[in-house]
Design a protein around this nucleic acid. Structure first.
Lengths: 288, 288
DNA sequence: ACGATCGATAAGCTCTGCTGATGGCGATGG
DNA sequence: CCATCGCCATCAGCAGAGCTTATCGATCGT
């Protein structure tokens, strides 16, 4: 189970071709063929069906393992190398769009910071591999409960903010006049599916304990402004933290009253944040 | 970052000796020395201080990564190999002691089952590496909340049982007459620290939001009978599911009224449970 | 002060793991 | 229906990775 073999295996599976994988990895086709053969011999099972090239059941299973495994390996490597190398000058922060609330923005130093907006699942990977010094992930959770994050490496997490959530409705919506809304009442409404910008709909289903939450329009960007514009235009509802739905023209934000969930933001960092990163951690987390 | 090198590195660090690690791994001392040197060259940092042999800061960090990494690798390997190999006849179940509640016991087939009681953290590893077909982990959680388990591999979890928890008190205890108890009122009592048999005390601290929960006696076994005997003898309190504290002579079980937590049992299994395992999963999980 | 032990280093050998060439097989097109 | 092309498997050959044996300097205990 040499990681090299694993890497060529996943490349072959992804490209569905031995030759293409060889080109991509800088090997000859022969070497790739031997890699896969050696893996199959080692595991005692066929991993790929040839002609056309497609993973077998065992191969599919190995693929599920291989991704996280290689990611963790890279993370471990990057983490240790980073300790030894000279600390890079700037400070990079990876965050989901709604994680950049007022509390976070106030804690940032005046200069030298790079902010990188990424999809939810990419944040732990970025922090673990050193692509970012700090990560900020937002999600829906019961009050004071931690978020569930994939653990690619031993990272430290701290809750930094909890905000009530509101439903963003176009101004003319029948429910726009309400004082509060229950999530269950909205299960059959049309929703915006914006997994990288807002909260993914399956988090809503989980919080509500089921429900349809039909996606009416899928938005794959990370831009909140576009998302609110889509909501204003009536393409669907979306759930956002209160601080983000303050004054969006053409919309009304109605607080969510049930279930009792909050928009929780968590800060994550590796074992030894640099000086600048440590400063921010202290500011955001407080005395903890 | 060859896993072999990683393995020798952790062995050297564990044994604090190059020569001893060489003996343990079946290499010569020279080979071990070269392994470590090659790792250090690759990562560009000293990992071990020699004479005496102890990990450096970077080495400590690498050690944190190495354990889960090697475990995951072994899990991946075992998982794929298992798919190909002939299914073993029996069925092995790994469980924490309190996870074997009445609901679980009723679902077991009459014969061919091996039950193995393990510490909490070992269960996911056992299931992932094929040491067990199914795992049962019990822990404290808010009602209907999932437990937090370490993810060594892509495993599937299902909640199978939730029970109220009770505090086990010796018969003569001042609080033994109460109808219910609040966890906060017991923070300063003497507790049994039995991480492998009952719930670890830090879970109590987490559930209570702090508190001392001083360990008076530490019990490292997994035997519930011994644990209840210790509790009866007044060596400390312990928290157990109601079904486990029914009629322990010399003790009184008082329900816990606050915070609202339950003793939750979760079933976990790999991607493709065998026929017998699948049967149990269906019985325990129901229609889900 | 001396012997024992430990880790680093050098030299040599073996076998892994790569390349380049060739062959079988299936798909495509005239 | 056959020629051609592209794909993957296999073979032979070679460079180097990786192990062992041998030896040295340093450290510790007696």
């Amino acid at each position: 189970m040499d990681p090299h073999l694993l890497r060529t295996f996943v490349t072959v599976a992804r490209l569905a071709s031995f030759s293409a994988a060889a080109r991509a990895l800088g090997y000859t086709q022969s070497a790739v063929s031997q890699h896969v053969a050696s893996l199959e011999l080692d595991l005692g099972a066929a991993l790929l069906s040839r002609r056309p090239v497609a993973p077998t059941a065992a191969g599919e299973r190995l693929l599920e393992h291989a991704g996280p495994l290689l990611l963790r390996l890279e993370a471990a490597r990057a983490d240790v190398v980073r300790m030894a190398a000279a600390p890079a000058p700037g400070l990079t922060l990876a965050a989901t769009p709604t994680a950049l609330g007022p509390a976070v923005l106030a804690a940032l130093p005046p200069n030298g910071v790079t902010v990188r907006v990424l999809a939810r699942e990419e944040i732990p990977a970025a922090v673990a591999t050193g692509g970012a010094d700090l990560g900020l992930v937002a999600g829906l959770a019961a009050p004071s409960d931690p978020l569930r994050l994939p653990d690619v490496a031993p990272l430290t997490t701290h809750g930094v903010a909890e905000e009530p959530v509101g439903v963003l409705l176009p101004a003319g919506h029948p429910l726009a006049g309400r004082r509060g809304l229950r999530l269950g009442d909205l299960a059959d409404a049309r929703w915006l599916e914006a997994p990288d910008a807002a909260l993914p709909l399956d988090q809503l289903r989980a919080a509500n304990g089921g429900g349809a939450f039909r996606p009416a329009l899928r938005y794959e960007g990370t831009d909140l402004h576009t998302l609110t514009a889509l909501a204003a235009a009536g393409h669907g509802l979306t759930l956002l933290p209160r601080s983000a739905v303050g004054a969006v023209p053409g919309t009304v934000a109605v607080p969510l009253t049930a279930p009792r969930v909050v928009h929780r933001t968590e800060l994550l960092h590796g074992g030894s944040p640099g000086a600048a990163a440590g400063e921010i951690v202290r500011k955001l987390v407080g005395g903890a």
